[in-house]
Computed example of a mutant assay.
Amino acid sequence: MSESVQVHMPSQPVAPAPQFTQLLSATRHGARLARLLTVEQIALWGWPRDSERAEAAAVVVAELAANAVAHGRLPGRGFRLSLILLPDSRLRVEITDPRGDRLPVVSRVPDEGGRGLVIVDALAADWGVRPYPPSGKTVWAEVCPARQCP
């Protein structure tokens, strides 16, 4: 006697999370462009441009992109901006640079670097860093669409 296995398939395919990715030059202009592109993309996804959360997302991108330019730069290499609208409506920001040997450090000392990450920590629901093989890293942050995260 043979057994049959039933697999339940949803009637509608699950759509992938909306994403935006752009390679940018590791310059101040590239970091500024990352912020501008973020504002445009999240507006297309329905976040009001003048909302507190849209501004928070723009500032998070600006800080992470500035760090990629200042600390993650290698000659001839840029950085990548990725934006992912997660199913719970959080915005996941990812900045990938080629310097995996230089990990972000949060500093609350006035004359040291790392203060931008204090801002990221204050504005993002969560953030972190992961390796990007073979030699880079991705610094990510998640911003909620409303004042409080679900």
Rank of each mutant, 00 (worst) to 15 (best):
Ala43Glu: 02
Ile84Ser: 09
Gly78Thr: 07
Pro75Gln: 01
Leu91Lys: 14
Ala66Thr: 12
Gly114Arg: 13
Arg102Thr: 15
Val109Thr: 15
Ser82Cys: 10
Val69Phe: 00
Ala57Glu: 10
Gly113Cys: 08
Gly116Glu: 08
Ala56Val: 05
Val61Gly: 06
Pro110Thr: 11
His71Pro: 01
Ser107Val: 10
Arg77Lys: 13
Ala70Met: 06
Ala57His: 09
Leu81Asn: 03
Arg73Met: 03
Leu44Val: 00
Val106Phe: 11
Ala57Trp: 10
Ala65Gly: 10
Ile95Thr: 05
Val106His: 13
Leu85Cys: 11
Ser89Met: 11
Thr96Ser: 15
Gly113Val: 12
Val69Trp: 00
Ala66His: 08
Glu63Leu: 07
Val93Phe: 10
Asp50Ser: 08
Asp50Met: 01
Gly113Leu: 06
Pro87Gly: 08
Ser89Tyr: 05
Gly78Ala: 03
Ala43Ile: 00
Arg80Lys: 09
Val69Ile: 01
Val105Phe: 12
Leu44Gly: 01
Leu103His: 09
Glu63Cys: 06
Pro75Met: 02
Val93Lys: 13
Arg49Tyr: 00
Ala65Pro: 03
Gly116Ala: 03
Ala66Asn: 12
Gly46Ser: 04
Leu44His: 03
Val105Gly: 10
Arg73Tyr: 01
Ala57Leu: 05
Val61Trp: 09
Ile95Asn: 04
His71Gln: 02
Ser51Leu: 09
Gly46Trp: 02
Gly78Phe: 02
Arg102Gln: 15
Ser51Val: 06
Leu44Ala: 08
Ser51Tyr: 06
Pro98Phe: 11
Leu81Glu: 02
Arg53Gly: 01
Gly116Val: 08
Thr96Met: 07
Ile84Glu: 15
Leu81Thr: 07
Pro104Gly: 14
Ala66Gln: 10
Arg90Asn: 12
Ala54Asn: 10
Val93Gly: 07
Leu91Cys: 11
Leu86Ile: 02
Asp111Gln: 09
Arg90Glu: 14
His71Cys: 00
Ser107Phe: 11
Glu63Tyr: 04
Arg115Thr: 10
Gly76Leu: 06
Ile95Tyr: 06
Phe79Gln: 04
Phe79Leu: 03
Asp97Gly: 10
Leu103Val: 09
Ser51Asp: 03
Phe79Asn: 04
Gly100Tyr: 14
Phe79Tyr: 02
Gly72Arg: 00
Arg77Tyr: 06
Val93Ile: 15
Ala66Leu: 12
Leu44Thr: 10
Arg80His: 01
Leu91Val: 10
Pro104Asn: 14
Arg115Phe: 09
Asp97Tyr: 09
Leu103Gly: 08
Glu55Trp: 05
Ala62His: 11
Ala68Trp: 06
Pro48Met: 03
Ser82Asp: 12
Phe79Trp: 02
Val59Arg: 08
Thr96Asn: 04
Ala56Lys: 05
Val61Met: 04
Leu86Ala: 13
Leu91Tyr: 12
Arg99Thr: 05
Val106Lys: 15
Ser82Phe: 00
Gly100Asn: 15
Leu44Arg: 12
Leu83Asn: 07
Glu112Ala: 14
Gly100Asp: 14
Glu55Pro: 00
Leu86Asn: 11
Pro87Tyr: 05
